[in-house]
């Protein structure tokens, strides 16, 4: 796109919309991934109680923080190493 795009300096409507949509999708996927993983890590699966216990609540808070940190760490490593190795090819 950057190589052959000299004929159209402005992104089209479709491109602008796709860019915003894409960013929101990334955030939404990250959100649902966090829910899935942290539920798995922290919530007791016997459902003897309908409310979150204190322990589960604290675990969820910490899990969320760790998930964000891990997500960022992994993204950075992939950008560093992936660029060198042609990841995803």
């Amino acid at each position: 796109m950057s190589l052959f795009g000299f004929g159209r300096p402005q992104p089209t409507s479709a491109e602008k919309i796709a860019a915003v949509e894409n960013e929101l999708r990334v955030v939404a996927e990250m959100h649902s991934r966090m829910i899935k993983l942290c539920t798995l890590k922290c919530v007791d699966k016997t459902y003897r109680e309908g409310e979150l216990s204190k322990g589960e609540s604290v675990c969820l808070d910490r899990c969320a923080a760790k998930f964000f940190e891990a997500h960022q760490t992994i993204s950075e490593q992939l950008q560093r190493e992936g660029a060198a190795r042609g990841f995803g090819a």
Binding site: I35, T39, V43, E49, G50, E51, L52, S57
Partner: peptide
């Protein structure tokens, strides 16, 4: 209870 707890989990997260 699972539904109630799942909703609480989602709200918190």
């Amino acid at each position: 209870r699972c539904v109630t707890k799942s909703m609480a989990t989602q709200t918190r997260l």
